[in-house]
Amino acid sequence: MKILIVEDEKPLAESMAAYFSETDYLCELAPDYESASEKIALHEYDCILLDITLPGGNGLKLLQELKSYRKNAGVIIVSAKNSIDDKIKGLDIGADDYLPKPFHLAELGARVNALIRRKKFEGETFLYIGNMQLDVAGKSVTILNKKLDLTKSEFDLLLFLISNKNKVVSKNAIGEHLSGDEADRFDNFDFVYSHIKNLKKKMTEAGSADYIKTIYGLGYKFER
């Protein structure tokens, strides 16, 4: 699976690439408009992470170019300008998602995963982990043919952890992911702890292995 990271801030682009490199994704970097434009024309990507303010041009124009080639790459706009105008414009031209800076890499990972699932495996929305089966569209989990009784938050939490599997995900990243647009309202995400506790309990009681590890001081990790 190929991802193009169009981002002029090299340290950030490298972090993003490094985060994905340990997974099945292959990342390419484009630090400016020209190289991004060239890469988009020549190669096929599953997902493009697009910064809007680029040296040499506007990311939205790149998006228009991409659409003119009728390529089927998913596009996530990653922008420091968290302006509603840019967001609406970007989504209008055909971006699939919009992620304002600063963001958690875990959040980016979850968005990329979700986008690729939507684009690549149309209809095929089941994930299998050990004896566990996740129906992403139906938002349900089955362990040993028995449906798990999860709340929406618990399901979202599990999917988020699986999307970032084998990675340490911070409590803040989980908290912000679960509260979505409401994230800015909260001072702390202490509620994450009780969600994790409940989820672990439900999973192990149903007969699943205890995949979710607590990493002291940092967060949690879905280990497999």
Binding site: L12, A18, F103, L105, S170, I215
Partner: peptide
């Protein structure tokens, strides 16, 4: 400020993936 913030945040998340001692993890938190 958003961009440097994003860089620091991403670097910290990368650092989190390494084997940290308990003391380092506390500092990270």
């Amino acid at each position: 400020i958003q961009t440097p913030l994003a860089i620091v945040q991403s670097k910290m998340e990368m650092l989190m993936q390494t084997n940290l001692t308990k003391e380092q993890a506390g500092l990270m938190e």
